[in-house]
Computed example of a mutant assay.
Amino acid sequence: MSTTIIDEALDLLCANYIFPAKATEAAAAIRARRAAGEYDGLDEEILAARLTADLAEVCADKHLRVRIRDADLHDVLTHDEMAAAYREGLRHANYGIARVERLDGNVGYLDLRQVAEASMGGRAIAAAMELIAHTAALIIDLRKNRGGAPNGVTFWTSYLFRDDETHLNDIYDGPSGRTRQFWSLAYLPGARYPDAPVFVLTSDVTFSAGEEFCYNLQALGRATLIGQTTRGGAHPTQFFPITPTVEITVPMARSVNPVTGGNWEGTGVVPDIEVPAAEAFGLAYRRALEHVLTTPAPASVLAEARAALAGPEA
């Protein structure tokens, strides 16, 4: 069984990885280790971890992983079955939106754990943005965000710009050799949020599409990032089942930011204000409340902001 897993993993790697030369080098190294008996007698979980570590030794790519599949995916093997499981998972996760509310002082707060495909999560995203549309500042909490879909990043962040003239990101696709541009959208359901300050919270868990969210806004000067340097994965991937219980995720593309010309692969996104992740919300909330006090808000809102500033959270 281990031979089948290794052979299939390496075939998928060499056929799809965004950096073909690295794929060939990594495959040769793993075949040499197999010939030396290094994978003999390993169960699936240990084998998957070893293969992931050995791939990282050559490729240093945090999206490139061999791993055990979730138990509820063991019978999900075809493309259509995987798409259906993804849709169902998004629905149960509320399309990544864990919490949305108006905080005291008229500050909006979004706790976003996953970036959903825009075609699936668009209505939920629009509803969340409608709830914070009239706030004076916005905190977007990505400290537990582990990624998602690039077009979901485009949908979310388009709300933070006035029109469709903001170039957000490019993604180079290895198999086709094409580069796709991502721009802010011309139409969005509900009101935009183009002017009020935005604070984005980060941690060393923030990953992939969550990092793109951060990186794009930082590069465009549209948000202040507060927290820890993110995990460092900038290569969109595809999942391939090897067996009902083992899969490989292979990066097939790479992000190219139109402002910086680079991305966050391996380095992570460095916040504008670096503090422990647990302290990021308090600092962002204080900054947001201080901004509210500079606005011509109603007296009741200003009083609320002053009271919140005096409280423990800020």
Rank of each mutant, 00 (worst) to 15 (best):
Q228E: 14
V259Y: 02
N94K: 11
F281R: 01
V198Q: 10
G232A: 07
H79R: 14
R123H: 13
V275G: 02
L138Q: 03
T230M: 07
T245A: 12
V259P: 00
I139W: 00
A196H: 02
A308R: 06
L131M: 10
T245V: 13
I132F: 00
I18R: 15
N257P: 03
A277N: 07
T78V: 06
R102Q: 08
T224D: 00
S176I: 10
P150H: 04
Q238S: 14
E101S: 11
V153L: 08
V107M: 10
G108E: 03
I139E: 00
W264C: 10
A137S: 04
D173I: 09
H167D: 00
P150I: 09
A118I: 13
P298M: 09
V200Y: 12
L217A: 02
E117A: 11
R102D: 02
A137T: 00
S2E: 15
G108V: 05
C214D: 11
G96L: 15
G227N: 00
E290A: 08
A29Q: 13
D40P: 00
M129Q: 08
T267F: 05
F213C: 01
R65N: 15
A28K: 06
K144Q: 13
V256T: 08
D173K: 03
A118N: 11
T224L: 04
R91N: 05
